[in-house]
Design a protein around this nucleic acid. Structure first.
Lengths: 344, 344
DNA sequence: CTGTTAGCGCATTCAA
DNA sequence: TTGAATGCGCTAACAG
């Protein structure tokens, strides 16, 4: 049905009075076509509104020119803007994208996606799902059998994977050291879900800074949230219940920080005088929170772009029959200081 | 290169001791295969980790089973969560997606995308870019020549297009009527960019409500923002400069409302006592603004899902050689009342 | 510089 | 219920 009325390379060849081969050469911008033939063919192409069939081309070439991306919904700022970076860089490098979004890492769903990717003969796979640590056992198995280059975004490295990651640990440390420098004495943390690598790393960074400052016995300073504002609200209450001495909190993302700001208000705690708060992400709204939020900025778009660039290299190598060593590319976050953490 | 080592239907057929035809039948779940042959073939398929080549299949079938989606970046909550709805419904209906993101409607870029879509033989195109009104002249031309079903999301209907839209005008009216009911006397508006259909419609809704309440001479109550927080901040200042009597503002999205909240604070205006504020979108953060923001909730995921469902119908019809009448499917927004607009 | 031949991997006839 | 032949639209390899 869809082929009905469809112009093919043969039609173009016939009208232009050349062979399909010559048309193919023109289509692919090859040099071995005379100037006049080329222009004649091009005229016919546009007059017929001909567009080459990608399936036929890929089938014939044995290449798909496509990247498979497994992404996490668009619920949170970080993961979704990583996708923007991926899309635009892929576009720039001439790759097509096959994007699958998942809410959580569920074996059967991932199975279907990988199967679909294989069917589409993707030349590389980018795993852009925030890593549920517990999931990586079977996930690694699944991908091991796939001969396709694979890059993870924001996953802990075990030395045998290609990874592009933000240095979340450094981010946590920057945030916490800043609070210490501001003279806060007892600094709690509201982390993300403990299954997330990002959450773990930010926690580790916090811990490093805290312990370096000579504090110990810190377990009671930690509480776990779920990235959403309500859990920041609840989290701050819980934290202060446990330890009323707390005078600052590193909240592991800006959305939870927003919830924490509200909790502080409802408790009558002045920010930053009575309580210092630092978030993570620097979402566009953060500068307009009340008070404006000090936070750790990550260039998520760049993270995605870098992953694609690396993938491009891996694919080239793969075509040459080479294999490149696994490597983790690190991106550094940056502290953005605003009022929520700076005492007058 | 990529074909190297690739298992094809022939390999499966040979190992299973049947013809490629039979394998094909098994792959497509056709009934005319004996139970034992089927299971034998299936065993071979999985033992060989065979996966059918999508390009060959599509080429042979003359169908792509793919939808082309032109979307707007992931900068704003609305447009990006529409994409989530599209993705998940397309997935559910068995469509593949080809997604292209654009920042603004630029002829040459759209040209490339449409060309790419045609090459991929997409069976339907969803235009999910917030409509820059001025762009639709040439856009309509471009798509007119494409025989592919086309659905716009959130565009004004001219009676000849398939459209899925949120009733933004109703949303603007709901917001404004609510403020009137709360006893606010002079209600300004911070709109989105005037080139956006959504912005226009929300403005129209506001105007209808204002005028129905007997107000006239309203031009000085209108100011244009750009959807981002800073423009809400600047906008509120400008509005109050022009007319200090203003005691309420309908801000056309939540991000600008956030900026307006900050402006109000810096001016020492109590919310909601001195100034009532209503936003639009109900982003996840809105309930945690200070004070919590009254806003108009739109089910953007559903918007995307409905567009895909409609597209499915259009495609079916298209295959039958039928053409369905253009129609606009409307979704209704809902007012969410919080503290920013409710006087004690 | 251009054309001919062959085949990519699968599904759709038609026979058997 | 199964198989053989043919073609989808394009490009690669080879000739000329």
């Amino acid at each position: 049905m869809l082929t009905k009325n469809k112009i093919t390379i043969k039609d173009v060849a016939r009208v232009a009075g050349v062979s399909t081969q010559t048309v193919s050469r023109v289509l692919n911008n090859r040099s071995d076509v005379s100037v006049e033939t080329r222009s004649r063919v091009q005229k016919v192409i546009s007059s017929l509104s001909y567009s080459p069939n990608v399936f036929a081309r890929n089938l014939s070439r044995g290449r798909s020119n496509t990247l498979g991306v497994i992404g996490y919904g668009l619920f949170f700022y970080g993961p979704s803007s990583v996708l923007t970076g991926i899309e635009s860089k892929a576009n720039e490098l001439g790759f097509s994208l096959t994007l699958s979004l998942i809410d959580r890492v569920e074996p059967s769903k991932v199975d279907r996606i990988v199967y679909d990717f294989l069917s589409r003969r993707v030349e590389g796979i980018i795993w852009a799902v925030p890593s549920d640590i517990t999931a990586f056992d079977w996930l690694a198995d699944k991908f091991a059998r796939v001969q396709t280059p694979l890059i993870y975004i924001n996953k802990g490295s075990n030395g045998s994977d290609h990874v592009t990651a933000l240095d979340n640990r450094l981010g946590g440390r920057l945030a916490t050291e800043h609070l210490l420098q501001q003279g806060y004495q007892r600094i709690g943390i509201i982390t993300g879900p403990s299954t997330w690598w990002e959450a773990q790393e930010r926690l580790n960074g916090w811990q490093e800074a805290i312990e370096a400052a000579g504090y110990s016995n810190i377990d009671s300073l930690i509480i776990e949230g779920d990235w959403n504002p309500p859990s920041g609200d609840v989290g701050l209450h819980a934290l202060l219940d446990r330890d009323p001495e707390i005078d600052a909190v590193f909240v592991s993302n800006d959305q939870m920080a927003l919830g924490a700001l509200q909790a502080a208000r409802s408790l009558g705690l002045n920010i930053p005088e009575k309580l210092g708060i630092v978030g993570f992400d620097d979402i566009p709204e953060a500068a307009y929170f009340y008070p404006p939020l000090t936070t750790v900025r990550q260039d998520t778009r760049k993270l995605g772009a870098i992953a694609v660039e690396r993938m491009n290299v891996l694919i080239e190598a793969h075509h040459e029959g080479e294999t490149l060593d696994p490597e983790t590319l690190w991106l550094e976050p940056r502290l953005i200081v605003r009022k929520s953490s700076v005492r007058k």
